[in-house]
């Protein structure tokens, strides 16, 4: 579909007298078709940088991602569909760059060997696998306004800290699943792990994040 559209545009550009509506597709007139590459840095780069940083969790990598995405967008500006939001279009390209990044580091990062939970999480269950009933060990009540407090600065800061404490692969899996809503089959391919591995990665990530939030956000 996309390919067909770009071929159609190529032939339009080759037409010596394109209909007026087609002229706006010509990259030389990009200022009239909704894209303003010379304004991208001022208008969108901070948003895009934060989008990347939230996901890749490393300023250097996030910066690379944004640069790659904007340069790729500049090259592909003929493919922009008129009327689409400029920021949305750029974010889509950035998102692909970020997924590529995860695919690459997925191969490099040490395989996650732990089959069982780390002691800090495991000690919350007794020998029968039931939650220990002593209050600091079992899940506490979070209170009725936990949900509404999840847009607060305090929550954002706590979740950031908690994510940083996860093993990288756990965090990568969690980001792909919960921030990008990537399907688990696809995540298995990206991170080069089996279904069972991914199950452990996500379970570990969620359990550790829940506990960390309970300690550093609910309890302060």
């Amino acid at each position: 579909m996309e390919l067909a559209v770009s071929f159609a545009r190529m032939s339009d550009d080759a037409n010596p007298a394109p209909p007026e509506t087609m002229v706006t597709r010509n990259p030389a007139h990009s200022s009239t078709d909704g894209l303003n590459p010379s304004e991208w840095v001022d208008a969108h780069s901070n948003y895009l940088f934060r989008y990347a940083l939230i996901r890749v969790r490393d300023e250097g990598v996030a910066e690379d991602m944004v640069q790659e995405a904007l340069l790729a967008a500049f090259k592909a500006r003929d493919h922009y569909t008129e009327g689409a939001s400029e920021r949305g279009w750029l974010t889509g390209i950035l998102r692909h760059k970020i997924l590529d990044h995860f695919r690459q580091v997925g191969r490099d990062r040490a395989i996650f060997h732990e089959q069982s939970l780390p002691p800090e999480l495991d000690e919350r269950f007794d020998d029968l696998g039931q939650w220990k009933t002593e209050p600091p060990l079992s899940p506490k009540v979070w209170g009725p306004d936990a949900a509404s407090q999840m847009q607060s600065k305090e929550f954002m800061a706590a979740l950031k800290q908690c994510l940083a404490k996860l093993p990288q692969r756990c965090a990568d899996a969690f980001v792909l699943r919960e921030m990008e809503a990537v399907d688990s089959k696809e995540i298995q391919e990206f991170l080069d792990v089996t279904a069972a591995n991914l199950w452990v990665l996500l379970h570990r990530a969620r359990m550790q994040l829940r506990l960390c939030l309970e300690k550093n956000w609910i309890n302060v």
């Binding site: 780069s45 901070n46 940083l53 936990a146 919960e178 921030m179 969620r206 829940r210």
Partner: peptide
């Protein structure tokens, strides 16, 4: 536990949105 994992999912969605998350960082 289940309720809180679902809350974590909702909170993470907010966190993932640059307009809602005041990360102090710029290019």
């Amino acid at each position: 536990y289940e309720k809180q994992l679902l809350l974590l999912r909702i909170g993470t969605k907010h966190y993932a949105e640059p307009d809602e998350n005041p990360v102090e960082a710029s290019l």
